[in-house]
Design a protein around this nucleic acid. Sequence first.
DNA 1: GGTAGGATGGGCT
DNA 2: GCCCATCCTACCC
Length: 195
Amino acid sequence: MRQVYGPILKRSFYDRSTIHVARELLGKVLVHGPTAGVITETEAYPGGDDLASHSARGITNRTRVIFGPPGHAYVYFIYGMYQCFNVVCEQEGTGGAVLIRALHPVVGVAIMQSRRPKARKLADLASGPGKLTLAMAITLQHNGVDVTRGSLVVREPAEKRAFAIRVTPRIGISQCADWPLRFLLDPAPNGIIAK
DNA sequence: GGTAGGATGGGCT
DNA sequence: GCCCATCCTACCC
């Protein structure tokens, strides 16, 4: 098979402003065991003044890992049925994270399809934060794991391609609803348009 | 093609 | 008790 992975992103990649990391994660490859995909949509939750961030009200049992060291997974349970996957950014003690909302499946597509039997098209396998965690088998057990080593990591793509980035407000929030913190590959690979 | 509404449970005031 | 960083189905053009 053609090589699709480059090196694993180092912790220093995440030890920067959340907005910067959210933009730069586009086009990188999220790998979990036998499955992998190109990240096509992210949202920045920088904390601080951003009342939409889970970290906005400080450290609780749930939000502890967001204030921990960068380069770790923050996975939370939402709407009684789904999980969302974030990567912690910025230095320890700061509450920034990037929500990974969508990816383009590249490796282990058949496995992802078996985890998402209702998805009709390749583009639907991981075209939303809840779908992505289902397709990639990311669960609450991954909360707090190090994404710079182990089976759940983010890598450079083997081939770098130029692309444009589209910026919009974030989805499904009521606080700070007009802040331009959602980033999408434009156009996404193979015509995927994440909604 | 489009959209309205139900499912479903933990976190926090 | 209310609020969700959602997805899927049914139903309507």
